[in-house]
Simulated assay, not measured.
Amino acid sequence: MKHFFSNKAVYLLLLPAVMLCSFSLNTDKANFSGDWKLNESKSELGDFANFTATALKTEQKDNAITIARTTPGFNGGDPRTTTVTLTFDGKVTESEGFGGSKRKSTAKWSDDGQTLTISNTVSFERDGQTNEFKSTETWTLTKDGELSVVTQSSSPRGDMTTKARYTK
């Protein structure tokens, strides 16, 4: 009987330490803050190079991230910058998409805090019909300190994946 209580006592003493370590490991999230420039030589953009952000300016806080994306101008026009702030609580954020469309976005951290997933849905009118363009961006930091953004998208024209690499 004495042996049972001594093991139980050890477990009770270790439990708070184990719990403390598990919570402290999940608080270190990747930090995507900074001014990022597209590295085309390390990117796989396919036919969508003209639609990929050439620069990202991000400011990350504990509960949200603000992302300013600069994309090439349409048909050689001036570059365009759009800014959105996404919260990490799963709430949908509405912003302006291309051509005056509405974009709905959410941001979610992976369990280990090293990957940020941004889900977007853009609804737009074309030829009298409402169409939807959905995309999921997976943000990670590479071992060499670059930002990797892998985007999987789906539209009436099909599915595609792009891989963009950004440097500070």
Rank of each mutant, 00 (worst) to 15 (best):
Cys21Met: 08
Asn26Pro: 00
Asn26Asp: 02
Thr27Arg: 15
Thr27Cys: 13
Asp28Lys: 15
Ala30Met: 12
Asn31Phe: 10
Phe32Asp: 00
Phe32Ile: 06
Phe32Ala: 04
Lys42Ser: 15
Lys42His: 04
Leu45Ile: 05
Leu45Asp: 02
Asp47Val: 08
Phe48Arg: 14
Ala49Lys: 15
Ala49Trp: 02
Asn50Phe: 14
Phe51Val: 09
Ala55Phe: 01
Lys57Pro: 04
Gln60Glu: 11
Gln60Phe: 06
Lys61Arg: 09
Ile65His: 03
Ile65Cys: 07
Ile67Pro: 01
Ala68Ile: 10
Ala68Asp: 13
Arg69Ile: 00
Arg69His: 09
Phe74Met: 12
Phe74Leu: 12
Asn75Tyr: 13
Gly77Ser: 11
Arg80Lys: 10
Thr83His: 11
Leu86Thr: 07
Phe88Ser: 08
Lys91Tyr: 03
Val92Cys: 01
Ser95Cys: 07
Glu96Arg: 15
Glu96Ala: 11
Gly97Pro: 09
Phe98Thr: 06
Gly99Ser: 13
Ser101Gly: 05
Ser101Glu: 04
Lys102Met: 15
Lys104Pro: 00
Ser105Lys: 08
Thr106Glu: 01
Thr106Gln: 00
Thr106Trp: 01
Lys108Leu: 12
Trp109Gln: 01
Trp109Asp: 02
Asp112Phe: 12
Asp112Cys: 12
Thr117Val: 11
Asn120Tyr: 06
Val122Thr: 13
Val122Asn: 08
Ser123Glu: 10
Ser123Leu: 11
Arg126Asn: 03
Arg126Cys: 03
Asp127Ala: 06
Gly128Lys: 06
Asn131Trp: 04
Phe133Tyr: 12
Ser135Gly: 00
Ser135Phe: 06
Ser135Leu: 06
Thr138Met: 11
Leu141His: 04
